[in-house]
């Protein structure tokens, strides 16, 4: 995980064949410029980045469902709960489950655990839109390779 550049996911562990569930992992690094300010001498993962980690987890699942045809953008965070502090060196297990796929949007229930203990959860809604002009899709595909996303299974050529 490199939270200072919003790389919250280290690897996609599994995607359920139903395409309704995903499991990702991210190791909170010992060092990050994030911790310079949050907080000096007392490093804690910012809650907004835990939300971001859950959003990225869900994002990979949505991309698998639409085979990278469209890009999910976080639109709503509901019932977001940050239950305990997350500190450097802890490994986050992130899970997401699709609640509903509508026309141009997806709603999912997502959560983060450390050693099996629930530490954050939320219901997230994403707009799912055509890729913007430019290189965003290429960049996301590159990141997908780095996080072991199973591109051969879930992406169109």
């Amino acid at each position: 995980m490199r939270p200072e550049v919003f790389k919250m996911i280290d690897r996609v562990v599994s995607i359920d064949p139903s395409l309704d569930k995903i499991h990702c992992q991210g190791l909170v690094p010992q060092e990050s410029s994030i911790f310079d300010g949050h907080f000096p001498g007392h490093p804690i993962m910012p809650g907004v980045l835990l939300i971001e980690a859950m959003a990225q987890t869900t994002g990979w699942l949505i991309l698998a469902r639409n085979r990278f045809e469209k890009m999910p953008f976080l639109a709503t965070v509901k019932e977001g709960k940050l239950r305990t502090f997350v500190v450097p060196g802890q490994n986050l297990d992130l899970y997401s489950e699709i609640l509903h796929e509508g026309s141009g949007f997806v709603v999912a229930r997502t959560q983060g655990l450390i050693e099996g203990k629930l530490i954050c959860n939320a219901e997230l809604t994403f707009r799912v839109l055509p890729w913007p002009e430019g290189k965003m899709k290429a960049v996301v595909l590159k990141v997908a390779e780095h996080v072991n996303f199973p591109l051969t299974d879930f992406a169109n050529a």
């Binding site: 639109a75 709503t76 509903h100 509508g102 949007f105 709603v107 809604t125 707009r127």
Partner: peptide, 13 residues
């Protein structure tokens, strides 16, 4: 449009 996503979700369900 954002609130309408919530409405659409509820209507779909």
């Amino acid at each position: 449009s954002l609130d309408f996503l919530d409405i659409a979700f509820a209507i779909d369900k």
